[in-house]
Amino acid sequence: MDARPSVNISPAVRRAYWLRTRRMTLVLLSIWFTVTFSVIFFARELSEISILGWSFSYYMAAQGTIFIYVLLVGLYAWRMPHLDKMLNDASNNGK
């Protein structure tokens, strides 16, 4: 099955596709920025919390943020084929 949409896509379908793509990208970038900024900005407050003998700020800097980044990339990689399929289906149905 060819995942590429046909060339004849209505402007409304194309606009809806890009709106959803941009919205998802902005949400994921907002989560990325919030996680990165909050760990740095609240490092002193987070260092008072201890997990398995390590301060929470160290844990987040060493492993937690990387884990969240991988989840964000995985979520993007999982969701984009669904959006592409929606565009392809809409273009094949002539909407």
Rank of each mutant, 00 (worst) to 15 (best):
T21P: 00
T25P: 00
E48W: 11
A12E: 14
V13H: 01
K85P: 03
G74Q: 05
R22M: 10
N92E: 15
L87T: 03
N92S: 13
I31M: 15
V13F: 02
V70A: 12
Q63M: 11
N93H: 07
P11R: 10
R4A: 15
Y69A: 01
V70N: 05
Y58G: 01
L52F: 07
N88C: 11
Y58S: 06
Y59S: 03
T36L: 09
R79P: 02
V73Q: 04
K95D: 15
P11Q: 08
S30L: 15
K85Y: 07
S55F: 03
N8I: 05
I9S: 00
A90N: 02
S6W: 02
S38P: 04
K85F: 08
I40S: 14
N92Y: 08
R44I: 07
S91L: 04
S57Q: 10
G64M: 00
M24V: 07
S6G: 15
P81Q: 02
W18G: 00
S47H: 03
F42P: 03
V35L: 12
R79Q: 11
M24W: 00
Y69F: 12
F42R: 06
F42K: 06
L19R: 11
S30D: 07
T21A: 12
M1D: 05
D84H: 07
R44F: 12
S6K: 10
N93A: 15
A90H: 00
W54G: 01
N92A: 14
N92T: 12
M60A: 13
T21W: 03
F37V: 15
P11F: 10
G94I: 02
L71V: 09
Y59Q: 02
A62V: 04
R44Y: 12
Y69Q: 09
